[in-house]
């Protein structure tokens, strides 16, 4: 697992399948938590992850598809849509500095 320095994170993509449910909820929560940090958060279908994304967040059930769609992109997989430790770590690293496993 390679790490990414949190100061290199400017754009987070929450990747999802339909983009109408849980990922939307996570993206909105993240946006709020990262307000004022200058980091943008967007949600897109897993098959159309934009090239300028610095980190991709997706449910572990979608991780294989996300890796295939965006090879080499740092990816953080989570299990729980709200309050997942992996997501909390990412937010903490962005706010306080540090490296994120991705």
């Amino acid at each position: 697992m390679a790490g990414i320095d949190s100061k290199d994170i400017h754009k987070i993509i929450v990747a999802c399948d339909a983009g109408m449910g849980s990922s939307v909820m996570l993206a909105s929560t993240l946006k709020k938590q990262l307000k004022g940090t200058g980091v943008t958060v967007e949600h897109t279908p897993v098959d159309s992850i934009p090239a300028d994304a610095d980190v991709v967040l997706c449910h572990s059930g979608l991780a294989a598809r996300a890796r295939a769609a965006a090879p080499g992109k740092p990816l953080v997989a989570f299990q729980i849509f709200l309050g997942d430790p992996a997501v909390t770590k990412l937010v903490d690293a962005i706010k306080n500095g540090g490296t994120v496993d991705a």
């Binding site: 399948d17 339909a18 983009g19 109408m20 449910g21 849980s22 909820m25 279908p45 449910h59 059930g61 979608l62 729980i80 849509f81 709200l82 309050g83």
Partner: peptide, 24 residues
């Protein structure tokens, strides 16, 4: 179908079932 792929459980005894991209 969507639920069988990934659970829509989001915590606090709440689930948010919805369709797939194709079902839009």
């Amino acid at each position: 179908d969507r639920e069988r792929t990934i659970s829509t459980y989001v915590g606090e005894e709440v689930a948010i079932p919805h369709g797939t991209a194709a079902s839009k």
